[in-house]
Design a protein around this nucleic acid. Structure first.
Ligand code: FES
Ligand code: FES
Lengths: 145, 145
DNA sequence: GATCACGAAACAACAGGAGTTGCATAACTC
DNA sequence: GAGTTATGCAACTCCTGTTGTTTCGTGATC
């Protein structure tokens, strides 16, 4: 499977929008992400439904933030995307007859579940505002150097 | 992508082989896993190269364990499979020009790397022998009840 | 009403695991 | 040594889910 890059793409977009006055069109966002306006609308639809974004049709329309970046965590974005599959690996059969396979699934499944929990918890601790400030630091270093 | 089930499949097979006298053919293993002998050979090739298994051609041939299950961890099997991709999610561009994207990649990439490290460490702590003993417990419960 | 921009549906492209077929090769049996 | 068994390898197809593209509809602005 190709890696699902929707999460990082949305974070990228949200920060850019925060530093931008007025609504941003799907067309412009698509150019930033090197992709297609339709893909942008599809991906951002979930964030609009959750109330993180608004979209306005017609002339002068486009996308705008409905909340501060400090109020949105990486986990919020992950969930707005429909909680996509985290792992590329998994068990062969979720409810096997074979007792050996049940023992294997118990161990592997447990490890995966725990790793997923930890990852999502970590995502819940990171606000996009923090990422934006990290960007500011990088920018300052860049212009200073 | 469909979830990569090779890890759990191999664990399943290894435990079965441990409880089996003499070599096991790819044909028999394929029936256990509800799959194809060629898929079995392809998947098990890596374990042979690492010295965990041996394979013998010809009449009376097949696959056999070359080590005790207590000497093989889940991580060993994972690595023998070629360290397949762990996550289904990832960043859009590994080396972006855009500073915003760099900040995003730093945060998301770090969280993913750490989660992967933790998961693989956990895999390194679990030997297949333990899984086999867990199977024994399940079996005892089953016959007792 | 012309233009701009989102909304939704339908479809092709792509990637990687899984499944399949065919043939070569090695080992054992007789 | 001929026949059988079983792995080894290469070259497909199939499946699933993200990504990319086209088309048409609709609402808002000028
Ligand atoms: S396939 Fe029957 S016990 Fe594993
Ligand atoms: S696309 Fe993000 S800074 Fe240029």
């Amino acid at each position: 499977m190709r890696a699902d890059s929707r999460l990082s793409r949305m974070l990228h977009v949200l920060i850019h929008m925060d530093r931008h006055d007025g609504p941003v069109t799907s067309e412009l966002i698509a150019r930033m992400l090197n992709t297609n306006p339709v893909v942008v609308r599809r991906t951002m639809a979930g964030l609009r439904e959750r109330g993180y974004l608004t979209s306005v049709k017609g002339h002068g329309g486009g996308w705008a933030l409905a909340r501060s970046l400090d109020e949105i965590t990486l986990r919020d974005v992950y969930e707005a995307l429909g909680e996509p599959t985290v792992f590329a690996i998994g068990v062969a059969d979720d409810d096997p007859k074979c007792l050996v396979e049940q023992a294997v699934n118990a161990a592997v499944g447990e490890a995966l579940r725990e790793a997923e929990q930890r990852l999502l918890s970590r995502f819940g601790e990171i606000s996009i505002g923090e990422l934006a400030r990290d960007f500011d630091r990088r920018m300052a270093e860049c212009t200073a150097g």
